[in-house]
Amino acid sequence: MNADFPLLVARELHKAYRKHKIEVPVLTGLDLTVWAGEFLCVVGASGSGKSTLLHLLGTLDQPDRGTILLDGERIDQATPRRRDQLRNSTFGFIFQFYHLLPEFTALENVLMPQLIRTSLWGYFWQRRKLRQRAIELLERVGLGDRLHHRPRELSGGEMQRASIARALMSEPRILFADEPTGNLDELKGREIIDLLRDLNRQQGLTIIMVTHNMDLVAPSDRVVRLTKGKVEAAPPLQMVLPPDGETVSNKQPHHPLIDPRIDPLLRKAL
């Protein structure tokens, strides 16, 4: 993975929610660049549009205006089929409320992205390999002994681990985490964040995490702060200061609007 190459680029994103003819603008011309292999924290007050941004980037929703590029491919206006494909194999999601399917065991939940992707026949041929991989992933997140437990038999932390394993099942290029610790106590939340950080460090998995808890942000992370539907020009340094007071390097200089490496890509795609 090339850390110098922008994996995901969002330009001039606009999104508003409408209800009864009242328009509530959420994103108002947001620009963002995500680099391969980085751990990006999107922070901001409630209602600042963090989750909406995540949904737009993860093709769960479409912007009213603006462009999203994945490796130079425009994905905001991709066909539904392509977007389904992206969500299935390129992106992984973890949510605040875990969102595991209650009727299925942890193992089946982890297998689900593969089940969605493959046909009955295809699954039949690869079932050993796939199950093996799902078991390995569950062991990796520390749930090796809870393979056949249903979500309601798992604790919150365990459910979130299972959902991380599920997100990793299809070897995604980007992992979207929407308040992954929002429903957990501090200790469990810390464990989850550590797990994500390990994945980022050891496997170079690009992670975009939305949170409002600044305690979770590590010095090595890049932090993007949303205010009123836009990225603040530069995050206040004190927000990302580690507890021991060391200074941190910030990877922010590559602003998409001025970055010469991005613009040719954009021009081509547009």
Binding site: Q85, L86, N88
Partner: peptide
């Protein structure tokens, strides 16, 4: 409804 949302987030199509 939520499960349907989850399935779609995991890449299930409308047709699916």
């Amino acid at each position: 409804t939520r499960d349907i949302g989850i399935l779609k987030a995991l890449g299930a199509s409308n047709l699916g």
